[in-house]
């Protein structure tokens, strides 16, 4: 297809956003009259816009309520049938009641299994980031090497399972809490924005609340913590303990806009982030580096640019090793070594 000039491209954008004024509408109409080609471009834009508004319409439709209505018409009051049944049995003997309810419970269990087993998993491979809209309308961003498992049906529970780092903008629904299972933690919300970092290999699960309220509890009990906006809760896996502190949420969520942000962060934190971001291994040769704190923001920089910046702004130097070949022929991870600039002089 032929390129469209910038002026008309912007008109299409403003049409797409619903921000055209009368004057612009006239210009766009005239342009559409000019050629079939132009109309094709316009229709493609229109289709993209309609796909998105259809998705939004679907989100707004309450399948739960509709189903209740339909099942009431078809089955009457579902539960009362079972209750009368149980009552009849109870009238005969108490013991059969126990058996009946146990049976009823088991059957219900099995059926809800079908429903809840329809889960979908999405993952963002190492070195990549992705985002998506969940069936309930919540938005999530997956950082490098992260995955999320979520129920396919917008009508069922809102329980998701994550590994790695995920940023959530949870759609409001006070009736159905949204529960994130991260390692041993359960994070419960109704509508809120937060970031959870829970890589299996990490010692700590970090949760940062940007907006709203969040309740964190451990799977094996203990008192839940009610988080406030701007707070960071770290769960230390080995001790089973939670720590609370205030933080700048921006630095924890910058990754979702493709930014790497450090604010007075210790070097080990910086290194762990860089390793995941670029899918590399970093080896610290001179241990004193680990005491440095680091402040910087990177946006769309290559690994090389970041390392060079690191070298310029801190007494650090680096070397990049050739990538080794794995036995299966694939290339291994890139390996980077960090030296203290003082330390290297001693070696020379």
């Amino acid at each position: 297809m032929k390129q469209i000039d910038e002026q008309h491209e912007l008109l299409l954008v403003r049409y797409f956003l619903g921000e055209l004024d009368d004057m612009e509408k006239t210009v766009l109409d005239r342009w559409l009259q000019e050629s079939e080609e132009n109309r094709r471009h316009f229709n493609a834009v229109k289709k993209a816009g309609e796909a998105i508004s259809d998705l939004e319409k679907m989100k707004a439709i309450n399948g739960n309520k509709a189903f209740q209505k339909v099942s009431l018409k078809l089955f009457g009051k579902d539960k009362s049938i079972v209750i009368t049944l149980i009552r009849k049995i109870a009238a005969v003997l108490f013991l059969p009641l126990l058996i009946a309810s146990a049976w009823f419970y088991l059957v219900q269990e099995k059926k809800s299994e079908i429903m809840s087993s329809v889960y979908q998993q999405t993952e963002s491979p190492a070195g990549m980031r992705s985002s998506m809209v969940l069936p309930d309308g919540s938005m999530v961003w997956l950082n490098s090497g992260s995955r999320i498992r979520y129920p396919v049906y917008p009508g069922s529970t809102r329980e998701v399972y994550i590994e790695g780092e995920v940023y959530f903008e949870v759609a409001k629904d006070p009736e159905r809490p949204f529960i994130v299972h991260a390692g041993e933690l359960n994070i419960e919300v109704t509508g809120t924005i937060f970031n959870c970092q829970s890589y299996p290999e990490d010692q700590v699960i970090n949760t940062v609340l940007v907006e709203g309220t969040v309740k964190i509890s451990q799977e094996n009990g203990g008192r839940p913590i009610l988080m406030e906006a701007g707070e960071l809760v770290g769960f230390i896996k080995s001790e089973g303990k939670m720590t609370r502190s205030m933080t700048d949420p921006e630095k924890h969520i910058a990754w979702k806009s493709g930014k790497l942000m450090f604010r007075d962060d210790p070097m080990d934190v910086v290194i762990a982030r860089l390793e995941r971001w670029y899918n590399i291994d970093i080896q610290v040769v001179d241990k004193e580096i680990e005491h440095y704190a680091y402040t910087a923001t990177f946006e769309n920089e290559t690994l090389d640019q970041v390392l060079r910046f690191l070298e310029l702004s801190a007494p650090i130097s680096y070397s990049v090793a050739e990538r080794e070949q794995n036995p299966d022929g694939s290339l291994g991870k890139q390996k980077v070594k960090l030296y203290s600039q003082g330390g290297q002089k001693v070696r020379q």
């Binding site: 399948g63 059926k111 079908i114 069922s156």
Partner: peptide, 24 residues
């Protein structure tokens, strides 16, 4: 098959899977 065996849970599942798309 489940539906034909009167499985209401499956009916619910199908309903919720297709409902909003069909309404639109």
């Amino acid at each position: 098959i489940q539906l034909q065996q009167d499985d209401r849970k499956v009916f619910e599942l199908i309903f919720k899977f297709y409902y909003s798309g069909l309404v639109v």
